[in-house]
Nucleic acid binder design. Structure first.
Lengths: 173, 173
DNA sequence: CCCATGTCAGTATCACTGAAATAA
DNA sequence: CTTATTTCAGTGGTACTGACATGG
């Protein structure tokens, strides 16, 4: 349970790497693994991890607005613009403006995007599924709680989410 | 406990978002929180999360080689080159070539880099510390195991780590 | 006029691939 | 000559800030 990265280098547990740094390296390792998988997905199936998540969410909430999407993903609206541009350019989604509020941009899946919704799972989703299948519920629950705590703690340091908008009562669907 | 992102939008638990997608969103949320913190650190203290992690590791293993560092971080050597270039440009680390093996580049901290080592904790480290302090050991342990499983599972899909090198017996210190 | 929504321009890090330079 | 180590060039995605256009 200790000093994972030092062990991988020296093959033994050395020095007094404190627990914070040790746990931190586990988290960054996960982060790197995610980035790598995302990059690989882009090369093999033409879609990144975040892009696929957006497609899945749009599948659940057809016609969702950009602001709502940004809030769900906890990203800045301008970041979402970039992601949606790439998704639209490659034909996964289609945007139109809200007839009832011209400022809003509503996003829906194209046929190509729908096919992804149904189709075989993405690499990352498969990995998660395998983990969930073989791990006791309590353990997953504990993990979820810790991860959410970390996210909250990280966000608390400076203001809240990057997207402080889209708070209206309008349901996306 | 379920459908975290849908709840945040609608204020109630709707639809049948499957567990995989739900857990996935928790993981991406953590990822985003990390990226955001890293960005913020860059603005306020002139150093990103990964950069700080590199400084901490170099602090533990003075004179570590680039290959070893890349292996510890699970990144491609060329990725590390970029990180080290930025660290060196801003005066955190210094590189010199190994007198015993001219191919190797050894990295050490400058005085400025050492000060970070001692000095107050980075934002991310503080967040982790607070979580570790208030969470039972078993729960942290469970989290660590699950996270490591995910990293392994993600890496298994395609070959192993990006850095398949630096495997020699030479200790970095 | 003021606020909300979304996009655009500009900038930076990270991460890769593939090629090249240098040394063992 | 072959292999190992690292860097470099080029590409692309994510994420921000700050400005802007447009609509309510």
């Amino acid at each position: 349970m200790r000093h994972a990265f030092a062990e991988s280098l020296l093959g033994k547990a050395p020095l007094g790497l404190d627990d914070v740094l040790d746990f931190l390296s586990v988290i960054w390792a996960l982060d790197h693994a995610l980035q790598r998988s995302s990059k690989r997905m882009e090369a093999t199936m033409g879609i990144t991890g975040p892009q696929r998540l957006v497609i899945r969410i749009v599948g659940r909430f057809p016609g969702i607005s950009a602001g709502h999407l940004a809030a769900l993903l906890h990203v800045h609206p301008s970041t979402l613009t970039g992601i949606l541009n790439r998704l639209e350019r490659n034909g996964w989604v289609r945007r139109r403006s809200d007839p009832r509020d011209g400022r809003r941009s509503l996003t829906g899946l194209t046929d190509k995007g729908l096919s992804v919704e149904i189709e075989t799972e993405g690499v990352i989703e498969n990995a998660i599924r395998r983990i969930l299948e073989r791990t006791p519920r309590e353990k997953i629950q504990a993990t979820r709680e810790v991860l959410e705590s970390i996210s909250v703690e990280l966000s608390k340091a400076w203001g809240s989410d990057p997207s402080e908008s889209a708070g209206s009562g309008e349901e996306p669907a």
